[in-house]
Computed example of a mutant assay.
Amino acid sequence: MSGQLTQSRIGQLQCPHDGDVCKGGYRTRSIARAAALQRGWVVSPDYRALIDALIRKREEAGTSQRELARRLGKPPSFINKIELLERRIDLLEFIAIAEALELMPGVMLDQLRASLPHKVSI
């Protein structure tokens, strides 16, 4: 198998030369999302609802991931990883994202809370 890429158990392509994940675009968005889905703490149904709401609000505002990241002073991968459920956000990041979208964080949080079940899972 020398010189061939093999797939590890989490879907990353392993380089046959040194066992590391190969660089150069082999890892696709779908593979990254599959790896993220294995981390239950990132993707509880209620957390997914939060991220879906943020995506909806960003799209309704006509703001790209790149533009939102620019407003936050972050690289585009910051927003991309949040939206792909590869990275959790904390309360301060939620506030900053809402304000960068020219939304009131408190109102947005109230709307989100109203859409969640009585007992929230994390």
Rank of each mutant, 00 (worst) to 15 (best):
G24E: 05
G19C: 12
A32I: 08
T28R: 14
D20N: 13
C22K: 12
D20Q: 15
I55D: 08
D20A: 09
R29F: 13
T28F: 14
S30I: 12
A49V: 08
D52M: 08
D46C: 08
D52P: 04
C22M: 04
V21K: 05
S30L: 11
R29H: 11
V42T: 09
R29Y: 11
D52K: 09
S30F: 13
R27Q: 09
I55N: 00
S30K: 12
L50N: 02
G40C: 11
G40A: 10
Y26D: 01
G25F: 03
R48Q: 06
C22W: 12
V21C: 05
G19W: 15
A34Y: 06
A32N: 09
V21Y: 11
S30W: 12
I51N: 01
G24I: 08
Y47V: 09
S44I: 10
R29L: 13
D20Y: 15
A32Q: 12
I51E: 02
L54P: 04
C22G: 04
A53C: 05
R33G: 02
G19L: 15
W41M: 11
A35P: 03
A35L: 02
G24A: 09
Y26T: 02
R29Q: 14
A49C: 08
D52E: 07
L37C: 02
R58Y: 07
R56M: 13
C22E: 14
K23H: 05
G40P: 05
A36R: 03
R27A: 03
E59F: 13
L54Q: 03
V42G: 08
G40K: 13
D46E: 13
R48V: 10
R56K: 13
W41D: 14
I55V: 04
A36T: 07
G19K: 14
A34Q: 01
R39H: 10
R27P: 01
K57I: 01
